Simulated assay, not measured.
Amino acid sequence: MGLITGLLTLPLAPVRGVVWVAEQLYEQAWQELNDPAAVRRQLTEVQAAREAGTISEEEAARREAELVRRLLPPTEGWEV
């Protein structure tokens, strides 16, 4: 980046900083959402809630299906 370009784009520095922070937050959230250990922990929590009777069988099945789908790698041609 040359001196002139640097001076002309200086007012955009705060915007670039905010975009960078947003990208970092998105990446971190995506990794946490798809972390196998976290998904397995959530499956255990769903099972415990089912056994305690705090959620219905249908709700537990729906949550488990979503969590298992997050564990499996995407297959081409399947909706994700």
Rank of each mutant, 00 (worst) to 15 (best):
A38R: 12
E51D: 10
V68C: 00
Y26E: 14
R62V: 02
A60V: 08
D35N: 14
Q24G: 09
A65D: 09
A29N: 07
L25K: 02
V68P: 00
I55D: 03
E57N: 12
E66W: 03
A29F: 07
A61M: 11
S56D: 14
Q28P: 01
E66T: 08
L33P: 01
Q47C: 00
W30K: 07
Q42W: 00
E27G: 11
P36N: 06
E59D: 13
T54Q: 05
R41N: 12
A49D: 10
T44S: 09
G53K: 04
Q28D: 12
E45A: 13
G53P: 00
Q47T: 04
R40L: 11
Q24E: 15
T54N: 03
L33T: 15
E27Q: 12
Q42V: 01
L43S: 02
V46H: 08
V39E: 09
Q47G: 03
L67D: 06
R40F: 06
P36L: 05
N34R: 12
E57F: 07
E51C: 02
N34Q: 05
R63F: 02
A37K: 13
G53R: 02
A49V: 04
A65W: 06
Q31T: 10
Q24I: 13
E64G: 09
Q28L: 13
V39M: 13
R40I: 08
R41W: 01
E64N: 12
A52K: 01
R63A: 13
E57G: 02
V39P: 02
A60R: 02
Y26F: 03
E32K: 15
V46Y: 04
L25T: 04
E32F: 08
R41H: 07
L33H: 14
V39Q: 10
W30D: 12
L25W: 05
V39N: 07
Q28H: 09
Y26L: 12
E51H: 07
A29W: 11
Q42G: 03
R62T: 09
A37G: 02
R50I: 04
A38V: 01
E27L: 10
L67P: 00
A65I: 04
A60T: 11
E32G: 10
E66M: 06
N34S: 09
E66D: 13
R50M: 14
L43T: 04
A49S: 11
V68G: 00
L33D: 12
A29M: 07
E27Y: 04
E51M: 08
Q31E: 14
E64W: 07
Q24V: 11
E64A: 15
D35M: 04
S56I: 06
L33K: 11
R40W: 11
E58D: 15
A60N: 07
G53D: 05
L43H: 05
S56F: 10
V46D: 14
A65H: 08
P36C: 04
R62G: 07
A52R: 03
L33N: 06
G53Q: 07
W30S: 06
E57R: 10
S56T: 15
E57H: 11
D35I: 01
L43C: 05
E32M: 14
L25C: 03
Y26A: 13
A65G: 10
R40Y: 06
V46S: 14
R41C: 02
Y26N: 06
T44K: 10
W30G: 00
V46C: 13
R62C: 01
Q47H: 00
E57L: 11
A29I: 11
T44A: 14
R63E: 14
D35F: 01
A65L: 08
I55Y: 14
Y26D: 11
S56P: 02
A60P: 05
L43Y: 05
A49P: 00
N34T: 08
